[in-house]
Write a protein that binds this DNA or RNA. Structure first.
Lengths: 167, 167
DNA sequence: AATGAACAGTTCGGTACCGAACTATAATTC
DNA sequence: GAATTATAGTTCGGTACCGAACTGTTCATT
């Protein structure tokens, strides 16, 4: 289901999640292929690390498509990549489609939880509802929402401590 | 990143999410390939529907591997598939690895939200914290947790209605 | 009876990726 | 200085999937 995790800018071809991560990461700061691998390994706790056989050819392709460019070379045939203006634009357009992407994630999670989630189905469903309500809030209400969520966390944590106290 | 969404039973080869869905769905009740496609389309609101070119050959493969079997044939060369005992066992073993699978989903979501999520970072982080607290609760406390979450939803919904009232 | 839609399935060129095996070089350790 | 480790990159057979184009059959509508 690689094609499921595809993201489309307003104009241009759809991009894989690996490409998206590359664009996003180089948007933060230019770096080498090796650095990208290390970064993704850290961020995902080693659970997802694109293989070198994937990454290096993909960097080459993205360079040929003028999304990224080599901004510096170093020893050991090291290449430091940075985004081009076209790459910046593509990344921005993909991120603008945040709603569609989040919907994808939502149906994916729903399915995932239906298959794996058992004991917690009810609670997770309520979490989803919270998520939906949050998404509909206008940004002005972030602070109020944050306080409500923080109180919720406190109350939930208190459940276990109440149980401990009654033992 | 098909290989990222791979699930491993205790013994036996790792399985794709499509395979997992098939096993899960046939575990519910036997059905045809066409029914599987319809079901996944419904559950994902059309966002993920394995292609026929994927599903039918995969059903054949799973049959050859004795995970599923044809329990009935009908008109139009219709085949109704059901799980075999081996398929039931495989499904059960994969679902037993729920923790690893959920960890995968968590790092995937974190990455996803880092790339796409902006306005709501704080709120989503709080949602993650709620999730972590929920995961640590013992099942006995599901009801209390559910009530807390329900109240949280009410409070969040009231934010918008408060705003509407003040206009 | 003819037509269109729904149901049901097959083939295969192509994509995105994996991972093993490979090459190369600089830095660190002994 | 030699050995080891880390950094850096390449190639390509293979997997899981897509989707277009195809075949076929039953049911519903006109």
């Amino acid at each position: 289901m690689n094609d499921f995790w595809k993201f489309t800018p307003t104009c241009g071809k759809e991009r894989s999640l690996t490409t998206l991560f590359i664009l996003y990461s180089l948007h933060q700061e230019p770096k080498s292929g090796y650095d990208l691998l290390k970064e993704i390994a850290e961020k995902t706790e080693g659970k997802w690390v694109p293989s070198k056989g994937t990454l290096y050819p993909l960097l080459k392709d993205l360079e040929e498509e003028h999304l990224i460019r080599i901004v510096e070379t170093g020893k050991r045939s090291k290449n430091i990549f940075g985004l081009t203006p076209f790459g910046e634009k593509t990344l921005q357009q993909i991120r603008e489609h945040r709603k569609e992407s989040r919907e994808k994630m939502l149906v994916f999670k729903n399915l995932f939880i239906e298959i794996f989630g058992q004991d917690r189905s009810t609670l997770y469903r309520l979490l989803f509802e919270i998520r939906i309500v949050i998404d509909d809030l206008s940004p002005d209400n972030n602070d109020r929402a944050a306080r409500i969520l923080e109180k919720c966390i406190d109350d939930l944590r208190r459940i276990e401590s109440d149980v401990c106290d009654t033992r």
